[in-house]
Design a binder for these strands. Structure first.
Length: 107
DNA sequence: CGGCTGACTCTGG
DNA sequence: TCCAGAGCCAGCC
């Protein structure tokens, strides 16, 4: 159904991330799979292009390891973890998120 | 128009 | 369970 839309790939990725409800988290691979035709890297790169303050909950996007990806120096990573906690996401001693509880399941 | 950069994932040991 | 290396594509200057 999602055939190649006239919108840029990044725009498409942003649309998917935006569909993530609060209190849930999705992986780059999951997003890439939903978008289709793009690799997990593209999703991560697209996120990097997303400025903080946008309507895009990039914070709810984490890696397949269930952990937040190490951004530049790691400062943004801490903020992301804090934001997820505000959403209601819980981290274990390994700073990992349980997809079984917070994993976003697209309709 | 050409080249560089970048928030990942997978497999093997 | 942790560490390492390789593959991939689009956007931007």
């Amino acid at each position: 159904m999602n055939d190649t839309p006239p919108l840029p790939l990044y725009q498409r990725i942003y649309a998917i991330v935006r569909q993530i409800p609060a209190g849930k988290v999705a992986t780059y691979g999951q997003i890439a799979k939903i978008v289709g035709g793009c690799t997990p890297r593209m999703v991560g790169y697209a996120m990097s292009a997303t400025p903080t303050g946008s309507d895009i909950p990039w914070q709810r996007v984490i890696n397949a390891q269930g952990k937040v990806s190490p951004h530049g120096d790691g400062f943004g990573t801490e903020m992301q973890r804090a934001l997820l906690m505000e959403e209601g996401i819980a981290f274990d001693s390994q700073e990992r998120v349980d997809f079984d509880r917070f994993g976003w399941l697209p309709d």
